[in-house]
Structure formats: structure tokens, C-alpha cells
Amino acid sequence: MDSDDSKRLLELLSARRAELIAQWEQTVAASLHGRLSTVELGRELSELYDAITEALAAGGLAGRGPEYGVVRSLLVELSRNRARQGFTPTETAVSVFSLKEVLESLLGGSVEEIRAYLQFSHLLDDLGLFTVEEYARTREEIISAQSQQLLELSTPVVKLWDGVVGVPLVGTLDSARTQVVMEKLLQALLDSNSTHAIIDITGVPAVDTQVAQHLLKTVVAARMMGAECVISGIRPQIAQTIVGLGIEFGDIPTKATLADALRHALVEIDKAASTRAAGLL
């Protein structure tokens, strides 16, 4: 029964291959409003068409079966490309579903043909769903890659002077970012053999107890490794909030600008260097 249907389908699909592909291409192109070149579309669709015919020839109408491996990998590629190029899920799935429409117009009235068509339509539904799933997965991947990138972009550690590294913080500090900042800062201290670090919070929009807590943690960790931290870039507004909230930075030096902090760090380094220069080491 199943094999009968697929044989009938196969005959229909291979007999009128060129015609069907052309029509399919036309329908899909119309739905995409010319945002994809016809050459590229034509290549994609004819590859897909041939893969489907081959799978039908291998027998079976189960879209998730082993015969459809090639079809699925083509669909994965198609939906990935569509997702990257910014097409909507509908525009992606329509590439599969419109084959039904094309086939429908060729349908004769016989019961067998209609049954075969229905079977094929089930198959295409399944493949269409698979496309949408793949589309969603690609979008997820893009989003998580972007947030990872954002996290890395927003926490650079720069060397300001021999023995001084700076961390210009931009954006709100939450515990995930603090973790990244801390990791990068500590590693930079080790790599550059720096004894001083300047954390610049000019780009941090607001400092509340939570943010202060995160800053303190970072400073304490740096201290345990043997480096001194200075917090700089405290705007007047922020200074008022800090005092208003009763946040204590303890013995951590804080400066208004990055320049002040750098001067402070250089003076400290100079103190150490001058005693060393006096022939003590």
C-alpha cells in the first residue's frame, strides 16, 4: 500500500521534474519577494527535489526515517541560511510547503492519486516542521553566540603602564559579569606581572549595594594575589549615592578620574622602585 503510493508519486515526480521544479521555484520566489537570487533558489530547490525523489525511490514516506538523511541535511542547510539572512520562519517553511501547492494543480480526480497526494502531503508537513525546528535552533545559536560576544567585548583588560592594568567597566555589573571581569583581571595581573590594577567605573550607570559588593569581591581577589586595586571614574552623582546608601569601600583607594588613579598607582610603584634602586634588592 505504502510502496504503491510512493511508486505512483515517484512516477509523477520524475516524469514532470523540470516543470514541477520551475513552478515550485516560482511560488517560493513570489513568497520571498525577490530577496534571494533565482539562481541560488533554483539550485537549492532542485537539489532538494532530487533528494526527495531519491528518498521516495529508496522507499518509505517517513520524513524522520534513515532514507531521508540527505533531505534533512539539505533542509538544515536551507533553514540555517534563511535564519542567518533574516527571513521569517514562515518564509523558511514555505519553501517546503509550496511543493504541495504545485503538486495539487497537477492532481487528477482518481482516488489513488488523491491518496498518494495525501501521503506525500503528510511527508511534506513533517519536513516543513523539521525546517522550522532547525530555523529556531539556528536562531538560538546566533543569540547565545552574540551574548557571549557581548560579555567578552564589554570587559577588556588593558595595560596602562608597566605594572599597571586597567579595567574600564561599561554597563551594569551582575554576578555573571563580575565573574568574567574577575577572571580576566586576575589572569591579566599574572600575565603582565602587574602589581596595580585600576577599575574604572565611568561607564557603570548606577552603583547600588549589589554592584559595590561585586566590586569589593574583585578587589579582595586581586589583593589576595598580591596586587593593589584603585577604583576610579566615580561621578559626583555616584559619589552621592554611595554615601547615601552607606556603602563602605574600606581602605580601597577611590579616585574621581582615571588620570588620578594612574598617578596614584605610579607614585606607589615609584616608592617601591626607589627603595629598590637604593641597592636593597
Binding site: 574577575m182 589572569q187 595581573l189 602587574s194 586581586a222 589576595m224 594575589m225 598580591g226
Partner: peptide
Amino acid sequence: MRPAVAMTLVELGLSLGGVRTALN
């Protein structure tokens, strides 16, 4: 002290106050 160790100690709430530290 390694960076990972420093971070662990901070998370544990230990700050080694009163202990001098140096990078190497």
C-alpha cells in the same frame, strides 16, 4: 596565588586580611 584560587576564596568569604601577598 592562582586566579582560580583567589576567586574560590572570595566566594568562600575569606579575604586573608592581615596577610601580605605578592604576585610571585
